[in-house]
Design a protein around this nucleic acid. Structure first.
Lengths: 245, 245
DNA sequence: CCAAAAGTGTTGACAATACACCCATGA
DNA sequence: TCATGGGTGTATTGTCAACACTTTTGG
């Protein structure tokens, strides 16, 4: 790589300069629906349209560092909090005409965050807003496609990885975790079976001893759990029928 | 994205120029082992070291088009043949110091090809060579890591997608397909059960009527199959025990 | 006492594995 | 006729979904 011909000497003019950016699909579950963080564009092109947050990669940072920096800016979270969030590289979009102004190659990331207070602390975050993540909303650039890809990927990832707990607060009930799955997949799940599967996956969740919390106001208080040390789910938690993609 | 501040006007100096390249992990199954296409570097840095093939993305092509172009050059295949091969974007590597000469962001792709004749038609392909894809071989740049990521990804992908047939010639026996799985996973599989699972996945393979071929010289001639129309595998073909990653 | 939410137990249908067995071919 | 690889049948074992049931809280 890095050279057109392996045997040729290094030629600084052999490459074309591109702008490299990151785009973020930041998901959260709130009010029983999947939401995504969007910004309204304040300049051309696509003035006034909704778009995914993001920005250019700086000269001395990796794409992941850029994504984490943008995430902290857009959500108004502190750097330490943002550093702990799960960030997953989705794929890179590089069609030559995806930005009408210039050649921009964009690395897309997905982030899963718990239900935060409104992202209006200061600075860039003032532009950002949680919007329902259903199909049908047209975004600027190729962001409609990126968001659809991100949604599908997240749905598939929570089957085999533990990252559904990223949508939950530090301590959560199994009912809340189940709501995450039901919201992301858009299907109802059997509570007894869901419970068994989660507890049967070693390291997925671990109980908080003695702790319990009322959830719906009424009903039996639910035991609290926190995310366990595992990252992958064995066995996986498969959605009822229709396979992904 | 595309702008540092959503409300700010477009500033052509707001971005840093990067070189954008593609790296290819081209896999094949030959002589009972998984092999990968490598080139020996003819210039600094890492002179004489093995590296993944690749090259810069040209101004008017997408990363995938660049990957397909490089694939055709390195394998010596015609453009049409290369266009039909399965090419899968893995992820993007963007650490600032991954190339000592300059800032290069690289989009990595994996390709699965049948056992080709030696890749020595002409031009760039003369440098390329099939090498066993085991762990332990140190490559130039961060290619050791890219190759390891690619290997793991391919192993996981053939569980849920139909792309194992990409390793096979246009017409193949179920024994050959099973060898692909056994080679990529490094495990032995039960032949009757493997057969049942493959045939139970609709659209995975379809029989070539009446065709049969001797495989090991001895034994009953095996029926021939070709790749079916499906892309995803329902139900999936899970490897015996140890989960990936 | 009733409604609501958490949690437990049980059962029957289905799937997967392990393995025995038959078939067709070359030597 | 034996070795080799392809192909079929089957029984045991295990898994999973469905659903009845118990528990604990607020009103």
């Amino acid at each position: 790589m890095e050279q057109g011909k392996p045997g040729a000497p290094y030629d600084p003019y052999a490459f074309t300069p591109f702008a490299v950016a990151v785009d973020l699909a930041v998901f959260t579950v709130r009010e029983g629906g999947l939401h995504v963080l969007l910004i309204r564009r304040g300049g051309p092109p696509y003035l006034g349209a909704w778009a995914l947050p993001g920005g250019f990669v700086l000269p001395d940072e990796s794409a992941e560092e850029a994504a984490r920096r943008e995430l902290a800016e857009e959500t108004g979270l502190s750097g330490e909090t943002a550093a702990a969030l799960h960030l997953e590289q989705l794929r890179t979009y590089s069609e030559p005409d995806r930005d009408p102004r210039m050649r921009v190659v964009s690395v897309a990331y997905a982030a899963l965050v718990p239900d935060l207070p409104e992202p209006r602390r200061g600075g860039d975050a003032a532009h950002a807003q949680w919007m329902p993540a259903g199909p049908g909303r047209a975004l600027a650039f190729d962001h409609t496609r990126i968001l659809a890809d991100a949604h599908r990927r997240i749905g598939a990832r929570i089957e085999y990885s533990c990252l559904a707990t990223s949508f939950c607060p530090p301590e959560f009930t199994l009912g809340e975790l189940q709501q995450v799955y039901e919201t992301v997949w858009g299907t109802a799940l059997d509570r007894p079976n869901f419970r068994r599967k989660v507890l049967a996956s070693p390291g997925f969740v671990e109980p908080v001893p003695g702790a319990a919390r009322l959830t719906g106001g009424r009903g039996k208080p639910a035991a609290l759990y926190r995310a366990g040390p595992a990252t992958a789910l064995h066995p996986p938690l498969l959605r009822p029928e229709g396979r992904p993609e």
